[in-house]
Design a protein around this nucleic acid. Structure first.
Length: 382
DNA sequence: AAATCGGGGTT
DNA sequence: AACCCAGATTT
């Protein structure tokens, strides 16, 4: 079959399939460029079902770009809590402020301008332009690369930058006249609902008849993708420091640095230990079974003027990021003293804070620490 | 081109 | 346990 006919068939069938089968998603209920933009940023590397509650909370708290531009950054981070890739939140607010100042509060409608905004890469630019403004720009994400690699039997490694270029050119050619938004969303919808990574539902696919991978029996082998490196293990020890006196019932937390992993999020004080926990240490934990870790933790906190006295083993926690796996032992501690030279024993460095069950909600935590704190306060609810 | 940057659902 | 998700940025 002629290539151009295959393309025309694909575009027409996909478009009509989408218009019949599209899911009713919150960000599909308007074409507010700001709302579309938020949804696309939240959807980066994140599933639809995960995003939905975050999207509702976000537009309720920040209904307009003006509201988001004027909000304290910590409020934005708190609403992003648990969603991951927290630089997305900071970039989004920074970009919205840029739109307020440089573009008079209107999301730019050209590829050149919108692409200058922080956190708006090739995908997000194309998605916002096509969905909000119906501009014929491609929006190539993982779904689109999977669908196109199968339908056109493209065996290039989709992790390569050059392959992205091939896909974008192809995706742009396929956009039907005047239907960029629906077509691009249809491409992603097909990838999410029908042309899935494993065991694709070819029998219900609107373009199965001319799918090259299907004809070749290759649908399970595509797309070709080089395997990612496994996350490196990191062994860590954390202090759950229980307050006394005026801080009875509270726990000491600290804020992470401005840059890097989990930037500006709050956490339990903890540090890396330069060796692995043996299976017996994981299985039969106690302070005495990991004494060198405990002394490393005490030394680490002493450098931040926090003197601790380890009391008991509390729990084991694991957390996997894309590139790191944390294997963490949590030790309940009492506060020996503040080692600040001149202050009273109640003074703490400014990036430390006492919190209880009611006040911890003011601070944004990564999920691993959220779980530890929620368990602790559930067990210590006087 | 490779590494960094979260967290969780599916199979 | 492997895979991968409506990716962008930095090195």
């Amino acid at each position: 079959m002629d290539t151009n006919l295959k393309k025309q068939y694909f575009s027409e069938e996909l478009l009509s399939w989408y218009r019949k089968h599209r899911r009713d998603l919150p960000w599909r209920r308007s074409r507010n460029p700001y709302h579309i933009w938020i949804s696309e940023v939240m959807l980066q590397q994140t599933r639809v079902e995960t995003v939905i509650p975050y999207f509702h909370r976000f537009i309720e708290r920040f209904p307009t770009m003006e509201a988001l531009a004027e909000a304290p950054e910590e409020d934005v981070l708190k609403l992003w809590e648990g969603l991951g890739y927290y630089s997305r939140a900071r970039n989004l607010q920074g970009a919205v402020r840029e739109v307020q100042e440089r573009y008079g509060g209107t999301v730019p409608d050209t590829l050149k301008e919108i692409s200058t905004l922080k956190g708006v890469g090739p995908y997000t630019a194309g998605a916002v332009l096509s969905i909000a403004y119906n501009k014929p720009e491609p929006a190539v994400d993982g779904n689109v690369m999977r669908v196109l690699s199968r339908y056109f039997l493209i065996e290039e490694d989709i992790m390569k930058v050059s392959t992205r270029g091939i896909m974008e050119k192809l995706a742009k050619e396929l956009i039907p006249e005047g239907a960029a938004g629906d077509f691009n969303q249809g491409l992603m919808e097909l990838g999410a609902m029908v042309c899935t990574p494993r065991s694709p539902h070819c029998l219900t696919c609107p373009v199965m008849e001319h799918c090259a991978a299907r004809e070749a029996g290759m649908e399970e082998e595509l797309p070709v993708k080089k395997k990612a490196k496994p996350p490196r293990p990191e062994y860590r020890i954390a202090a759950l420091i229980e307050g006394t006196g005026p801080n009875q019932g509270k726990v000491l937390i600290r804020q992470r640095p401005q840059e890097g992993l989990l930037a500006r999020m709050w956490e339990l004080p903890h540090t890396d230990v330069p060796f692995t926990y043996s299976p017996s240490e994981k299985a039969h934990p106690s302070i005495d079974s990991i004494p060198s870790s405990v002394s490393i933790l005490a030394d680490h906190l002493a450098e931040e003027t926090i003197g601790i006295h380890p009391e008991r083993w509390y729990m084991h926690a694991e957390h996997t990021f894309s590139h790191i796996h944390w294997d963490m032992q949590v030790i309940a501690c009492s506060l020996e003293s503040s080692l600040l030279p001149s202050g009273s024993s109640l003074l703490m460095p400014s990036h430390y804070q006492w919190v209880d069950r009611d006040t911890m909600g003011q601070y944004a935590f990564p999920n691993v620490f959220l779980k530890i704190l929620n368990r602790y306060f559930a067990e210590h609810s006087n």
